[in-house]
Simulated assay, not measured.
Amino acid sequence: MEQAALLQLAKRSLEIEISELEHLKNRLDGSFVKAVDLINAATGKLIVVGIGKSAHVGNKMVATLNSTGTPAQFLHAAEAIHGDLGVIQKQDVVLCISNSGNSPEIVTLVPYLKSYASALIGMTGNAESKLAAHCDVVLDTHVQQEACPISLAPTSSTTVQMALGDALAVCLMEINNFRDRDFARFHPGGSLGKNLTARVSQFLSSQKPEVSEQSSVKEVIISVSSSKHGVTVVTDQDEIKGVITDGDIRRMLMDHDDLSGITAADIMSKNPKSIEQEALAKDAMKILKEKNIGQLIVTHQGHYTGIIDLHRLLDEGIS
């Protein structure tokens, strides 16, 4: 198939799914609001049930809900009728996803879901199905056309299910005033969580190069050279007096033929940029980028505690 034909087919697929999402948006009504209220009022968790492609959608819904403050658990319909129904408690709400609403596993399972949980929400494309008949609330996900060229593979239907699940999660987030600080609590290992919670102190270099104001040129060069950062900090009992970079040393060597009597105080740049060790790492990154520098001096209550490096932050996903 030629490139133009492939692109046209892809665009047609997207157009169909976009159209079905528009239909979904336009038919949202009080049933959606009731579903949100039932989930929000539950003293237990939300159990999401599905089979086939709807099971994959359900797993994604559960992941989104859990990460945004709504406790949820996935239950596969085929496993549920063979023992896993025990995960459902009376205080739980069940959301059962089935496009047809009449698959054998769902039909067998629905009466038990209804009796075991506090409420049953159905997400189905068939308002006349066995699933719909048993539900307290029905969320209509019917589609006029699948994006699949032979109209058989779940495409538009699963897109609509996924989008409606996202809409539920977003509304529950807003109702519960779920904010970035809450999101970070559930994502401590990823770059999102690190950018929201990680402190400068977590990324301090193992090296803490420093010299005194009276240090000789040789001592300064040794300190800068032994530091992987290419800098050394001039201190007086951990009070920061200045900073010396390898560039400062080169400029000093070019300006002086006689190095005797020159000390760190003569070479250093005063008032260097610094940051408190309990500040957010993303704030350190902001300073590094704005000032176009590679390192930042770290302090605690005004005293020198170490160096934080641009490349270390980048490696850790801090942006």
Rank of each mutant, 00 (worst) to 15 (best):
T263N: 04
G83W: 01
A4G: 07
Q214S: 13
T232F: 08
A264D: 08
A184N: 04
K90V: 08
F203P: 03
I97P: 00
L95Y: 04
L109Y: 03
I175L: 13
L192E: 03
L46I: 04
K218S: 14
S201K: 14
L21R: 02
S67I: 06
Q301S: 15
A5F: 08
T155R: 07
G125S: 11
S212W: 10
C96K: 00
L85Y: 02
K25N: 15
H187A: 10
N102E: 11
N176G: 05
G122Q: 04
L139I: 05
I88W: 01
K208S: 08
A198P: 02
S216V: 03
S274T: 12
H311K: 13
T141N: 13
I267V: 12
G101I: 08
V93I: 01
I16H: 07
D257K: 14
S260G: 13
S129N: 04
V36R: 00
I221L: 05
Q214I: 06
H56A: 09
G193M: 04
L120S: 01
S100F: 05
N177L: 05
S19L: 07
E79D: 15
G247A: 12
Q207F: 03
V57F: 01
T305M: 11
L196F: 08
I39P: 00
R199C: 01
S157M: 05
Y116D: 00
Q3R: 13
V49L: 05
H82A: 13
G302A: 14
Q8E: 11
F186H: 10
S31Q: 11
L253C: 14
S216M: 04
K289C: 11
R199W: 00
V200S: 06
G247Y: 14
H76M: 07
Q237G: 07
E213P: 14
Q214G: 11
K11F: 01
V48F: 01
Q144I: 10
G101C: 09
K130Q: 15
E146Q: 05
K282L: 07
E290K: 15
H23I: 12
V170A: 09
E20G: 08
V234N: 04
I16F: 03
L172V: 08
I221K: 03
R185M: 11
R12M: 07
N26C: 14
A35I: 01
S129T: 02
S212M: 12
G44I: 05
K90G: 11
H300C: 12
L172H: 15
I244A: 05
S201C: 13
D246Y: 08
Q8T: 07
L28A: 05
N195Q: 12
T141V: 15
T299I: 06
A133Y: 09
F183W: 14
D258P: 08
L14A: 10
A72G: 08
D180I: 02
